[in-house]
Design a protein around this nucleic acid. Sequence first.
DNA 1: GCCTTGACGAGAA
DNA 2: GTTCTCGCCAAGG
Length: 119
Amino acid sequence: MSELSAADERSQRILAVVRAIPAGQVMAYGEVARAAGYPRGARLVARALGEVADPGLPWHRVLRADRRIAFPSGSRGFAEQRRRLRAEGLQVDAGGRVRLPERPAGEDPRADLDRALWG
DNA sequence: GCCTTGACGAGAA
DNA sequence: GTTCTCGCCAAGG
């Protein structure tokens, strides 16, 4: 196996988690970081997503901890992310806050995510 | 080496 | 509820 630099390995791990987010579900930068093994690495996730240029990567499913789009409203990225999220059935208001679709009570939305990541 | 910047987070006001 | 401030970690100048 090729030896990746520490920085590349971080990115690979982070991107693997992002790819595991199911359509219609979202995750915060900090949550992705924790799942990848970097409890305080929210900003590392942001950096990794900024570096990569993979069109197949569901980067739009990554939001801030307060469930808001990280880009400033009015920016190109903001519009793009909002468009993609809406295409997946999520509700996004003008301020960038994302509302998850309602689910049956008693079912934790995160169960799907955990299964996708851990099995 | 030090300082600044960034697709962030948690706690306080 | 929201807005502000400070703290974190890495990269780049």
